[in-house]
């Protein structure tokens, strides 16, 4: 830990502080200034141009009566829960890689998991959009070829969903009832490179003596995972979960690209971030969108605080 220096010495060496000025400036301009501007504009009726009118707390009181905004939390809640389950394949793969005896193979599997990261997320989204195409998409083609479509049609007739019909291509992004399943299915098999690497790092910090002791006790592989590996990587799991929840709550790029600014058929894909975008760029209510953003920020901050305070990890 660096030793503290006296004030006089710090003042004499003031030129050294100039080295942090560029970073501070960049953070101030690109992070803090937009945030402060958004807070400022949330108190105005603002159309995005130079004209604005101060309206006090009206934007915030309007949020209370905004049905679309509150309903969007139901959708985002479903997606958050789905994303918790979507973390499982990454954990599973990390465990599998960790248990490989050969270090060389471990390395190559890590490389193979990381390589897809070079494909920009946007490109992946567009590829998935093509997968969902009712006429040319891979998903419908796969369901037809595997006869799963026939099974789905029978299930539809039994449950009365009204979305799967024989001989009619399924519009995954065009049917209200299929919007949320489509948003959950996308990204299959849900293996995120960053998640795998984080969990792998956690697993590799587990000492071999723990495994040796487990072997001596006759613990099965699954029991090892359940009672040794999972508890010891809970810090990483918790970190991933916090980042995932924040990302899911704030995010709307997925929904915007796949469904458009209205949230798709029936508005089923509307999430708070997308509603904020809709108000700003479709309705032209930038001031109101800033207020929504501020509300979302406070909400996420509250959730993070709850998570930090009440979700404890026993080591």
């Amino acid at each position: 830990m660096p030793l503290p220096i006296s004030k006089t010495k710090a003042l004499l060496e003031w030129k050294l502080y100039l080295f942090i000025v560029p970073s501070v400036l960049l953070i101030a301009i690109f992070s803090y200034y937009p945030t402060i501007s958004a807070i400022y504009h949330s108190f105005f009726m603002w159309g995005g141009g130079d004209t604005k009118e101060f309206i006090g707390l009206k934007n915030f009181t309007d949020i209370l009566g905004d049905k679309v905004f509150w309903t969007s939390f139901i959708t985002i809640g479903i997606l958050v829960i789905a994303n918790v389950f979507r973390m499982i394949p990454s954990i599973f793969l990390a465990v599998l890689i960790h248990r490989l005896k050969s270090d060389r193979w471990q390395y190559w599997y890590r490389v193979m998991v990381v390589i897809p990261m070079i494909v920009p997320g946007l490109v992946t989204l567009f590829i998935w959009k093509f997968f969902f195409d009712p006429n040319l998409g891979v998903l419908n083609a796969a369901l037809d070829a595997s006869h799963l479509k026939t099974l789905l049609v029978h299930m539809d007739q039994f449950f009365g969903w009204g979305v799967f019909y024989e001989g009619v291509p399924t519009a995954w992004l065009g049917e209200p009832a299929l919007i949320i399943p489509a948003l959950i299915i996308w990204g299959f098999p849900w293996i995120g490179a960053v998640g795998v690497l984080i969990f792998l790092a956690g697993l590799q910090s587990i000492g071999t003596e723990v495994y040796e002791a487990a072997d001596l006790d006759g613990v099965t592989p699954f029991q090892k995972f359940l009672h040794i590996e999972l508890p010891l990587i809970m810090t990483q799991v918790r970190l991933s979960m916090v980042l995932m929840i924040i990302g899911t709550l704030q995010g709307f790029g997925l929904q915007f690209l796949l469904l458009g600014p209205d949230g798709g058929a029936g508005g089923r894909g509307m999430v708070p971030g997308l509603w904020m975008f809709n108000r700003a760029f479709i309705a032209g209510e930038f001031g109101y969108a800033c207020a929504l953003g501020l509300f979302l920020f406070v909400f996420i901050l509250g959730l993070t605080w709850i998570n930090n305070k009440f979700v404890k990890v026993d080591k």
Binding site: F44, D50, T51, K52, E53, F54
Partner: peptide, 8 residues
């Protein structure tokens, strides 16, 4: 009347 922002 039109100075921005328009305030009371």
């Amino acid at each position: 009347l039109n100075v921005q922002p328009r305030t009371p």
